[in-house]
Amino acid sequence: MPTVRTNDIETYYERRGDGPPVVFIHGMIMTATMWEPQLGALDDVFTTIAYDVRGHGRTGGADRNPYSIDLFASDLAVLLDELDIDRTVVCGLSMGGAIAQAFAAAHPERVAGLVLADTFPPGPLPLTGRLALANIRFLARLDRLINYKTLNRWQLRVGNWLLPGVSGDEVTIQRIVDESPTIPHAEFVKIADATARFPKDSIDLSRVTAPTLILHGEHLPMANEEITGQLVRQLTSTDPTVHVVPGSGHASNLDNPELFTARLQEFLTGCVYSARPEDNDDPSDAGESP
C-alpha cells in the first residue's frame, strides 16, 4: 500500500500513467476510489494521482485538533513534494474543491490548472449553503449514536425524495462509502468541522492565475448557481469556464461520469497541456509549457 509521510500522518495515494500530472481530491467521507471513472479514462495520457485525505480511507488520522482546510492543503503540498511533482492540475469535488482552492491560493505557481466540482467558495454563503454545512456538523455528532454510513444512506434517500436527483446516483455513492474503511468518530467530527469552517477561512482566490474549470450538478438547488457565481467573482485573475453536468447531483463525476470526464479531457488538452512541445509536430511553434 503506497504511502508517504505528509506532516504528521501517512497519506495513502494511487499513481497511474505517464504524462502531465493531474491530482484528484475526493469529497468528505469518500476516498480516492470515487475518482475511478476518471482515473481509468485518463491514465493512458496523463499521470493521475488520487489520494485519501487526512482521516479518510487508508490515510491515518492524528491527535492534532482542530483540523482545517489549510492543513489539508498543506498535506497536499507535502505529498506533491514527496512525489517530485512541481506543477500539476488539481481537481477537487466538494470538500476536495475547498482543499484545491486553498492549495491554489497558497501555491499558485504549482497549479497548471484548477478544476472545482460541486463545491463552495470562502465567504458568506446563501441560506441553503449555510444549512448544508450546519447539517454535516450535526451528522458528525450524531455519528456517536448512529454510524455515519447509515446516516448517509438515509440522507441520500431523503434528498432524492424531497428534491429528485439532488443525491444523484445514491447506489454508487453509498457503495463507495460502505466499502471504505470506517472513519473513527473523533476524526469525523474534526473533518466535518474543518469543512464547515471553510467559508470563514481567509483564502485569497485572486492569487489563482491558472486556467480554471467549474462543474456542478444539474439537480443541485438553485442556490448552487449563486454559490458558483460567488466563486467566479472571487477568481479575478483567471477566466473560469463553467459547465452544468446534466442528470447529476452533488457528485457529478459519479452521477454522469461520461460527460464529466469529457469536459475534463477537453479542459486538460485544450486549455492546460495543449502547449506542450511533445504534442506538436513543430516544437518551435509549441509555445511555453505551463
Rank of each mutant, 00 (worst) to 15 (best):
P2Y: 09
V4T: 14
E10R: 14
T11H: 08
Y12K: 11
E14G: 09
G17S: 07
G19P: 06
V23N: 09
H26G: 03
M28H: 14
M28E: 12
I29M: 11
I29Y: 06
M34Y: 02
P37V: 01
G40L: 12
G40Q: 14
F46D: 09
F46W: 04
V53A: 14
G61Y: 01
G61V: 02
D63F: 08
N65R: 14
S68V: 10
I69W: 03
D70T: 13
D70K: 14
F72N: 05
S74C: 07
S74D: 15
D75H: 08
A77D: 13
V78N: 05
D81N: 12
D81M: 05
E82S: 13
E82W: 03
L83E: 10
D84H: 13
T88D: 02
V89P: 03
L93I: 15
L93E: 15
S94G: 10
G96A: 02
G97I: 00
A98M: 15
A102S: 15
A102C: 03
A104E: 06
A104K: 06
A106V: 00
P108S: 03
E109K: 09
G113F: 04
L114M: 03
L116A: 06
A117Q: 08
T119A: 01
P122R: 03
P124I: 00
P124R: 01
L125E: 02
T128W: 13
G129D: 02
R130H: 05
A132H: 06
A132T: 11
A132P: 06
L133E: 04
I136V: 14
L139H: 11
L142A: 14
D143G: 15
L145N: 09
L145F: 14
T150D: 13
T150G: 13
R153I: 00
R153F: 03
R153Q: 11
Q155I: 00
Q155T: 07
L156C: 07
R157L: 12
R157D: 10
G159F: 04
N160M: 04
G165Y: 00
E170V: 04
V171H: 09
V171W: 04
V171I: 09
R175G: 14
D178M: 01
E179D: 13
S180T: 00
P184Y: 00
E187P: 07
F188C: 02
I191T: 05
A192Y: 07
A194G: 11
A196I: 02
R197H: 10
R197K: 10
F198Y: 15
S202I: 08
D204R: 12
D204E: 13
L205T: 02
P211Y: 00
L215Q: 06
E218K: 08
H219N: 13
P221R: 08
I227R: 08
I227G: 05
T228N: 14
G229C: 03
R233K: 13
L235W: 01
T236Q: 13
S237E: 06
T238P: 09
P240F: 00
V242K: 12
H243M: 09
V244Y: 05
V244D: 06
N253E: 03
L254A: 01
D255R: 06
F260V: 07
T261R: 05
T261F: 00
A262T: 15
R263N: 10
L264W: 02
F267P: 13
T269V: 11
A275Y: 11
P277Q: 01
E278V: 04
N280R: 14
D281M: 09
D281S: 12
D281Y: 11
A286C: 05
G287Y: 01
E288H: 12
E288S: 13
